[in-house]
Nucleic acid binder design. Structure first.
Lengths: 260, 260
DNA sequence: CGACATATTGCATTATTGTGCGGTTTTGTG
DNA sequence: CACAAAACCGCACAATAATGCAATATGTCG
């Protein structure tokens, strides 16, 4: 991104660290020498930055630089096998809400993968997704017709995001939007951890008549940085949470809350 | 944009170990010599890695390599993509032909999935594909940048074909086209079983500077209905076939034939 | 305005890590 | 039991990291 030649403006350590962290999350790894060259500071300063990022437990250091804490692929596979029972219950409940012949625009997450797997084999649906894993699961369904939305893939979400993916969604109009990775903040807004992802979800919601959200119990009340939409855009929320006061507030916003 | 460093990246021990662990979990077993070759480090370094993985009690060593601690029943799907010994050999041979920084337009087939898996982890490449499985394999690679080409998915090929997919290819210009499911007829033409697929392959070849074909031995001399292109458009053919007379004819058409 | 506390940086020095190589030992196999 | 492959060990070398220190901002308060 910032290919531009930065002026000899000296940045403060915290600013540098923020940029470095972003770089690490985007590229997976960075080296101390490269960073020193880029910021035009000594490697020592970079190392001090990296040390602080390690102290903050947001990156992993190796000899020569730093990297993400976990390999995304590893992380995803582990996430998939984690808490499968709960995801299956949510997925099944949501699958039951899909009528014959519906068109679905499907997010990327391990929970929605379970949703796809729980679709009745006799139900014929049309699935649009930019997620590699959702597409794979959809292909296993005997009747589903799957359409892939192209774009550059993020190693973290394993789906296409960014301008090209949003552009692909823009031309669509479908019955249901199925979101999985959203957090629902205490102020009753849908939120996402990643900016690109938040934009993409917004576009998905806009392209759909109804929006379904699949939320593991830990997603409710969770704070995430980037706003997607107010909860009122959601038609149905599927969860296993027992937090009845929170769920009641959601209901009062006009959302049909289903506890699986 | 890419900083344009032509030297393969050297990974740190922790990164290698993460990848090795992933490989072991995916493939069931790995050998030290293979890993040394892939990472372009000495076998000693690999052994040190394996020792640490053993110390962490996540893998099991045997003479020559390492394996999973317990062998869980491989689910059907994973076994499919695990591939045969023959596919791995072809895949590795083809992977060795890819230079640092190359852009690849990749077909769909179990053989090319192996090709992707055999790309050295230190090689940074850009992969364009409409295949769900190729994209998934590409995401497991630590450095590869994967771009999904959208379109309606065929349950048979597990990749996008048809007008939209061809349209997505039309705008591209890449270094290599990697084809896997082609048959090579006796009259030395590339052929495909599916009409849509044949059109798509044609478009892929047109968008690429060089065309590589990965052909299992049973694909040579096989008859298929739809013509894709004369064999002369192919730069390199990778196969395990021993049919020397046939291969000689192919060579005479200007194709570099590599027997893996 | 000036003095002082604080933060940040770069440099020199010392410690640590990662790597490959030669030599030796162990393992698997006929 | 012989033989080859693989593993281990110790070593030297290079790259990188930690540490202490001095110089230079930066900001605050009397």
């Amino acid at each position: 991104m910032s290919t531009g030649k930065e002026e000899p403006t000296t940045l403060s350590p915290v600013e540098r660290q923020a940029i470095i962290l972003e770089k690490i999350n985007a590229a997976g790894r960075v080296t101390a020498v490269d960073l020193a060259q880029e910021f035009k500071v000594s490697e020592d300063s970079i190392r001090r930055d990296l040390r602080e990022l390690v102290d903050a437990r947001v990156v992993q250091r190796f000899h020569g630089g730093a990297a993400r804490l976990v390999t995304p692929a590893l992380d995803f596979h582990r996430r998939e096998t984690l808490g499968t029972e709960e995801k299956q219950r949510i997925g099944r409940a949501a699958a039951a809400a899909i009528p014959e012949g519906a068109t679905l625009l499907v997010d990327t997450s391990t929970t929605v993968v379970q949703f796809i797997r729980q679709l009745p084999p006799t139900l014929s649906v049309r699935i649009f997704t930019s997620s590699v894993d959702v597409a794979g699961a959809g292909l296993d369904h005997p009747l589903a017709e799957v359409t892939l939305l192209g774009g550059r893939l993020s190693k973290f979400t394993r789906s296409a995001t960014g301008a090209s993916a949003i552009d692909a969604v823009r031309g669509l109009k479908v019955d249901f939007c199925v979101l999985g990775t959203c957090g629902v903040d205490d102020d009753l807004t849908l939120r996402a951890d990643d900016l690109e992802d938040a934009f993409f979800k917004k576009a998905m919601i806009k392209a759909s008549n109804k929006t379904l959200v699949l939320a593991l119990s830990d997603k409710l009340g969770q704070v995430a940085t980037h706003e997607v939409a107010p909860i009122s855009v959601v038609s149905q929320l599927f969860t296993t949470s027992q937090n009845s006061s929170f769920l009641q507030r959601v209901r009062e916003m006009g959302v049909d809350v289903q506890t699986a």
